[in-house]
Amino acid sequence: MNTVISFFQNGGPFMYPIALVLVVGLGLSIERWVFLTAAKGSNRRTFNRLLPLLQKKDYAAVVDLARQTRAPVGRIVAAGIARMQQTPRRDEIEYAMEEGVMEAVPRLEKRTGYLATLANISTLLGLLGTIMGLIAAFTAVANAEPSEKATLLSQSISVAMNTTAFGLMAAIPLLLFHAMLQTKTTEIVDSLEMAGIKCLNIMSNGNTFQSRTRTGDAVR
């Protein structure tokens, strides 16, 4: 712990904004992970409730269930049912359901892109802190005794490099979290699309829809 404190104190004033960026990024990562995990579970539970209703052609109950839940899969299926009441064309119904998926994507991707930006900011702050530290070091060396210049310069450079090291230490986990959240978001979007096609195929049984070939599985 003393080593960490000494490392932080020797890095100079730029260590504090880097630490702030790291804290904000970690908080954002946790919030997004919790949200996406809850969204995935909600979609799975809602789909499991929608499936038997669709198989019984109880579309009124499906719409009521979609209104009671915040899961995107409910709104997607409800949009398909609403369009089905207007036109028997399968492709038109599918377009309505795809529109529901597109409406859900922004909420799933919200604020995730900030993590990459925060990682870049952390790296740049570390580099800026190192450059400012080197400028101050060379200025101090210029006014020092000749016998002290080598020692003073090496110590100053070591302190200045702490800022770059801390900037990279903050940027690397933020980039990893960004990649993990993007992967999780993509999985949810793919599951919504597959669930929509599964529901569309069930809805089309017994109806004279014009088909457009696409296949998929239900939400896992």
Rank of each mutant, 00 (worst) to 15 (best):
F8M: 09
P13H: 07
P13T: 11
M15S: 06
P17G: 03
V21D: 01
L26A: 12
G27W: 03
G27K: 00
L28D: 01
E31Y: 05
V34Y: 14
T37G: 14
N43A: 11
L51N: 13
K56F: 01
V62E: 08
R67L: 12
Q68L: 13
P72L: 06
V73Q: 08
R75G: 15
Q85Y: 08
D91Q: 13
Y95K: 15
M97G: 03
E98A: 13
G100I: 07
V101N: 10
V101F: 07
A104L: 10
V105N: 07
V105P: 05
R107K: 12
R107Y: 10
L108Y: 01
T112P: 02
T112I: 15
L115M: 03
N120M: 03
I121P: 06
T123D: 02
L124N: 10
G129W: 09
T130G: 06
L134S: 04
L134N: 09
A136W: 06
A140W: 08
A144E: 07
S156H: 07
S156E: 06
V159L: 13
T163C: 15
F166K: 00
G167T: 01
A170P: 02
I172L: 12
P173C: 00
P173S: 00
F177A: 07
H178G: 00
T183M: 12
T183L: 10
K184L: 08
K184N: 05
V189W: 08
L192M: 12
G206M: 02
S211K: 13
T213S: 14
